[in-house]
């Protein structure tokens, strides 16, 4: 098989993803940012006395879990591998930068989906059935792809200090959580708030999650799915393009 061909590169991307799964899923920062952070944020709002119904809170928790978990793995991989010199090993192998980035995204996407499925099961366990399972699958897939692309995008600055990237990533992630209709319904937001929320892909995922659990939604479902897919493609292309430019400076 021609090593430059797409199937050959996809196989190598999968090899990178398997390596990431073995190494990075249980790293401290990944667990803190990907699992504990959304749980504690949710608990803070749940116990905050606002008396919000579970049908509103659980979709928010699902959105937050997917967002935090899918963006927890990918930003840290490049700096970790840069400092351990293992990135140089990958760079000297017959794999394109795009395939390396794609492999990291696969690992991140699977981590996001895996953790979020647990959250969905918790929702079902506390008595909130999933009304539209197929839409939830589609939303989880595109949401995880989109957020993992955001994660790899955050790792573009060519620093090999993971904490620097984690700090940058927190700077972006927290504002996004607050403008995306997780804790305040979009319908109750002022018009400028809704305009701002429209720029966040998390808004569309949360809207879909809310539809799946309660049947309510702000945007139409095709718009939510279409925009989530569009964000995924745009972020994926952007992250591959930018990593190609910055990777030599990281090595």
């Amino acid at each position: 098989m021609n090593p430059e061909s797409l199937p050959a590169q996809l196989r190598r991307a999968w090899a990178v993803a398997k390596k990431d799964i073995r190494i990075y899923y249980l790293k401290g920062p990944v667990l803190i940012f990907g699992v504990f952070m959304p749980v504690f944020l949710f608990l803070a709002f749940y116990m905050g006395g606002r008396d919000l119904p579970l049908s509103f809170l659980i979709p928010g928790l699902v959105g937050m879990t997917l967002f935090f978990s899918a963006t927890a793995v990918s930003p840290a991989i490049f700096p970790w591998e840069g400092s351990a010199k293992t990135l140089e090993r990958l760079a000297s192998c017959p794999i394109t930068i795009e395939a390396i980035v794609f492999g990291d995204m696969i690992a991140s996407t699977l981590f996001g989906i895996g953790i979020t499925v647990i959250t969905v099961l918790i929702g079902v366990g506390v008595g909130l059935p999933v009304l539209h399972m197929e839409i939830l699958f589609v939303a989880l897939f595109f949401g995880a792809c989109c957020f993992s692309a955001i994660g790899t995008l955050l790792a573009v600055p060519p620093t090999n200090i993971p904490s620097s990237i984690m700090m940058l990533s927190s700077l972006l992630k927290f504002p996004l959580v607050f403008i995306s209709g997780i804790f305040v319904p979009l319908a109750q937001m002022p018009s400028w708030g809704v305009s701002l929320a429209a720029f966040s892909p998390l808004t569309y995922f949360c809207d879909l999650a809310r539809y799946c659990f309660s049947g309510e939604h702000y945007f139409s479902i095709p718009v939510d799915i279409g925009l989530l897919a569009l964000f995924s493609v745009v972020f994926m292309i952007a992250t591959m393009f930018l990593h190609r430019r910055t990777m030599p400076r990281r090595l």
Binding site: P3, R11, R12, A15, I23, K85, T86, C93
Partner: peptide
């Protein structure tokens, strides 16, 4: 110059990873 095997993996896993990266 600097050893750059994946230290969180075993030698065998590192070898298999290389095998996959070279197709």
């Amino acid at each position: 110059e600097t050893s750059n095997a994946y230290t969180d993996l075993s030698a065998w896993q590192n070898m298999m990873l290389m095998g996959e990266l070279y197709g």
